Simulated scan of single mutants.
Amino acid sequence: MLSLAMTSPTEESHFTLCPLKLMGIGWCPGCGLGHSIIYLFHGDISNSFRAHWLGIPAVAVIFNRIYVLIKARLMERNQFKSLT
């Protein structure tokens, strides 16, 4: 998430491993989702929605998952400390 937040939202050409881009297809759902998240982190909500409409919900789901995992890890540590 941090790397997406620090990436430039401009459409500069760069090295890619995307098979659709390598075949010359202009739009890829995976790349569109990444661009959507980048635009969202830079505050450009309209371009975020234009790049991929699931970008905004994906960020909410990812941050929720990060929160749940951190909370579970902290609870696990607290239970381990109480046993010792």
Rank of each mutant, 00 (worst) to 15 (best):
R73H: 10
C28W: 09
F80S: 15
T7K: 05
R50S: 14
G34E: 14
T10A: 12
G26S: 14
R77F: 00
A5M: 11
H14G: 13
N47C: 10
P57M: 01
P29Y: 08
L22K: 15
A72P: 01
A5K: 06
L20M: 12
G32R: 00
R73Y: 06
G26H: 04
L74I: 07
S48G: 07
S13P: 02
T10H: 14
G34V: 05
K21S: 13
G26W: 00
Y39F: 11
L54R: 12
F41S: 12
Q79F: 05
R73W: 11
G34Y: 07
F80Y: 10
G34S: 15
L17D: 11
L83W: 07
A60Q: 05
K71P: 00
C18E: 04
T84D: 11
I56R: 03
I62Y: 13
L17N: 14
L20T: 04
G30K: 15
V59Q: 02
F41C: 12
L33S: 11
L83Y: 00
G55K: 01
E76R: 01
M75Q: 09
M1N: 04
L54W: 07
K81S: 07
A60N: 00
M75W: 08
I56V: 13
A51D: 08
S48N: 05
L22A: 11
V59H: 00
P57D: 04
S48H: 03
C18P: 04
H52I: 14
F15R: 03
N64M: 10
F41W: 07
V61C: 03
G24W: 07
F49T: 15
I66G: 03
L4K: 05
K21W: 12
